[in-house]
Amino acid sequence: MTESIAGLEHQFETLEQQHEAGWLGMWAFLATEIMFFGGMFTGYVIYRWAYFGAFAAGSKDLEIWAGTLNTLVLICSSFTMVLAVHAAETGERRGQIGFLLATMFLGTVFLGVKGYEWTTLFRDHHVPGIGFHFSGPYQNTAQIFFSFYFALTGMHALHMVVGVGLLTFLLVKAWRAEFTPAHHAAVDIIGLYWHFVDIVWIFLFPLLYLVDRHR
């Protein structure tokens, strides 16, 4: 019977069917995430068009080095993630553990930089709702910019935290040598999630940090 195949769940006939279902399931879930972030992106687009001056002023207030650094950090984390997948494909336990740890480390660095940015904004009274004050002509509309900044980066950071949690789950399984070249779907699938969160940031970086920098 099918139970004798290691890791095959009872509802599936073959491992290939199971892997295909898991793979497609994650892609379908990522489509929902596109729509989730997309709703906020839509608002951002509308208000940037309506209040370009405020958005430019707000954007310039953000620290570009932090944004660029974070972008590079996430790109590196996607690289280490895909190397972890490669290690799972080739059955290298040490590689899996090492690259998963590296990815988690880089993810944590990202969150640390983000925490620094938020603290700075808080100190400068640029957090909407918590004593917001933006000097210059854009008091109200700059608050809209920062609202989207915090909503978008906050949601993104939440997804990063979940991602680090998922990586921890993978790390435990990798430590226990549970991944084989034939059966390592979880690494692939969680990798997809991690790359997606990276892609969201790839768009957030120019939209939030690079509005009208040259002025």
Binding site: M40, P128, G129, I130, I144
Partner: peptide, 19 residues
């Protein structure tokens, strides 16, 4: 998911008076 985003924005607006 779009409903989810919308509700998040309403809640944030209500709590933080975003505008």
């Amino acid at each position: 998911p779009v409903l989810a985003t919308t509700l998040v924005l309403v809640a944030l607006e209500r709590v933080f008076h975003l505008g």
